[in-house]
């Protein structure tokens, strides 16, 4: 047993390139435990599921309130990134810390038209991140920007042209809903989050880069958000990998690797 695992570990740098082959062949790439974890947190009805849906499926759809948490796997280059879309309802509050365990990045989502949703992030959700990685990356995301920001609305038109898809014949010419949360508020919250996590503000990513305003409805900034974060968590993956080749044997890791091999040979 021990010998086997040693071999696997020795082979680990190779696995990266090898694993892509069976995945392309039989879609069994999901067998592998994900490399890194990203979690969406935020009050109910701020649009967490819609954001993820927009990114994964390229469309906006009426969603129903999420039950518990939903797990998605996203391939990002050679890496498997797992994304947890959590329920914002208080009912599932107790589970939050479980979904956040060892998370490499956490997206704190609020609704730009709802001040309370930003306040909730600090009151209710911040403490859930205690179980996340120590060097966890935080992003503060204000969704529903299409309601307040003409720029976000325009994104819809661009998107429509790109996709060539049918779009509703008319949409409100100008945003009508009052914006309740300013970008500065989100930036201030980002600072407080870092202080809460006792991370050094100067060493961390600057607030300007980590505060987003998005619209799941029009797609505004959605790709930017996810892809920025994916790129940012890459160093975490590499670090984890190098840690794994330390003398400590991770049996889970080995089992995963074995299965991959079997899939490859058969």
């Amino acid at each position: 047993m021990k010998v086997k695992s040693n071999i696997d570990i020795a082979a680990s740098p190779l696995r990266v390139s090898k694993r892509r082959v069976p995945r392309a062949m039989s879609d069994s790439g999901k067998m592998k435990k994900p490399d890194v974890k990203l979690v969406l947190l935020g009050d109910m009805n701020v649009g967490k599921t819609s954001l993820l849906h927009r990114y994964m499926e390229r469309k906006f759809k009426e969603t129903v309130s999420t039950v518990g948490g939903a797990f998605f796997l996203k391939q990002w280059g050679p890496y498997n990134i797992s994304i947890w879309d959590t329920a914002g309802r208080e009912q599932f509050h107790g589970l939050g810390s479980m979904y956040c365990r060892n998370a490499a990045a956490i997206i704190l989502t609020y609704d730009v038209t709802n001040w309370q949703s930003l306040a909730e992030l600090e009151e209710r959700f911040l403490s859930l991140t205690d179980t996340a990685n120590e060097d966890c990356i935080f992003a503060i995301v204000g969704n529903k920007a299409d309601l307040t920001d003409p720029k976000a609305l325009e994104a819809e038109e661009m998107e429509a042209e790109e996709e060539g898809a049918e779009q509703p014949p008319s949409h409100p010419a100008s945003p009508t809903v009052l914006k309740q949360v300013k970008r500065e508020d989100a930036i201030a919250l980002y600072g407080r989050v870092l202080r809460y996590k006792a991370q050094d503000e100067r060493a961390c990513l600057p607030a300007e880069r980590m505060c987003f305003e998005t619209s799941a409805k029009t797609g505004y900034n959605v790709d930017l958000l996810f892809e920025t974060l994916f790129d940012m968590v890459l160093p975490t993956i590499l670090k984890k990998r190098s840690e794994n080749s330390s003398p400590t044997v991770d049996l889970e890791e080995c089992r995963g690797a074995k299965q991959t091999k079997a899939g490859c040979c058969s």
Partner: peptide
């Protein structure tokens, strides 16, 4: 939706 896997109490 589609590829999602739900985990809930």
């Amino acid at each position: 939706f589609q590829a999602g896997e739900i985990w809930t109490p």
